[in-house]
């Protein structure tokens, strides 16, 4: 909404942004300083070389789990959002609200049934054992965001497609997905971050240290008593290391968003 800005306006905008950035940076900088306590960058090295944590393995585990979750959630949520937004069927409202009802289940409130389900399915201590619950918890939420967005895509485009004889699935592929890119990227980034940061599901369902995620691995640096200052510094280092992959995913998402938006704009 800024057209032909004067120089002074530009300065004012930058100043406001910078003030907020400083406030937002302060705690971040503090955590970095904490992570450099006692041994400096040695803390990061100590995390990577920790005898009980194979750092690259835990990063791989988290990454694999987060990517699979994101892919499955993306598929399920786009399909369902398409149907709920653009199709007419008898049980539509009932089904939609029954999914919306699942939105606010806090994992801490359903730990036991979650565990029972995983046990019954025989997926404890496996990747699927973490991915499936993560999908289940995230999908309804992402469905809602996507449906809201899909609602804003004009039906006329689909009507034109129908006249051309396109199948419903073809319209999903060629119309809904490309036009939905900004929202899809948002939910993908969000799902990735949620799965990456999730602690309670792996805590409950993973036993084998080879399957540990980055969040679980931080428990080697905690300890209410007998927590040495070195462990404290390493904990911060581990937590910061843990953030980096998510930041990269976010940056990719932002870039994709830009190109996706331009592509979407051209098509519409």
């Amino acid at each position: 909404m800024f057209i032909n800005l004067r120089k002074i306006d530009k300065w004012a905008i930058q100043a406001v942004l910078a003030v907020f950035a400083l406030i937002w940076l302060y705690p971040l900088v503090q955590s970095v300083i904490k992570s450099l306590g006692i041994n400096g960058f040695g803390n990061y090295l100590a995390v990577i070389q920790h005898p009980k944590v194979n750092y690259f393995l835990v990063v791989f585990n988290s990454f694999f789990i987060a990517v699979c979750t994101t892919a499955v959630v993306g598929l399920l949520a786009t399909l369902a959002a398409y149907a709920f937004s653009k199709m007419q069927f008898k049980l539509k409202d009932v089904l939609f609200y029954s999914l919306v009802a699942c939105l606010a289940i806090p994992a801490t409130a359903v730990m036991s049934p979650l565990f029972f389900t995983a046990k019954t399915l025989g997926i404890m201590n496996s990747y699927a054992g973490v991915i499936l619950p993560l999908v289940a918890f995230n999908a309804p939420f992402m469905l809602l965001i996507l449906k809201n967005y899909f609602d804003s895509i004009p039906n006329a485009i689909l009507e034109a497609g129908m006249i051309d004889g396109a199948s419903s699935f073809r319209m999903y592929r060629t119309i809904m997905i490309p036009l939905g890119v900004p929202a899809i990227i948002n939910i993908a980034v969000l799902t990735f971050i949620y799965s990456w940061n999730d602690y309670i599901i792996p805590l409950l369902l993973i036993r084998d240290e080879k399957m540990y995620t980055v969040t679980l691995a931080t428990q080697f640096f905690t300890g209410t008593t007998n927590q040495t200052p070195e462990m404290v510094a390493q904990l911060y280092a581990a937590l910061i290391l843990m953030t980096i992959p998510s930041v990269i995913v976010y940056m990719f998402g932002q870039n994709a968003m830009k190109s996706g938006l331009t592509a979407g704009a051209v098509k519409s």
């Binding site: 653009k86 199709m87 069927f89 289940a136 999908a139 039906n155």
Partner: peptide
């Protein structure tokens, strides 16, 4: 809505199956 019919159910089935497995069971429990 532009589309209708039984195929719509196919699109919502996957999410219902997965949510049903975990969330509906959790809610029921």
């Amino acid at each position: 809505s532009v589309l209708s019919g039984w195929r719509a159910y196919l699109y919502v089935l996957p999410i219902l199956v997965l949510s049903g497995l975990f969330l509906y069971y959790c809610i029921g429990f």
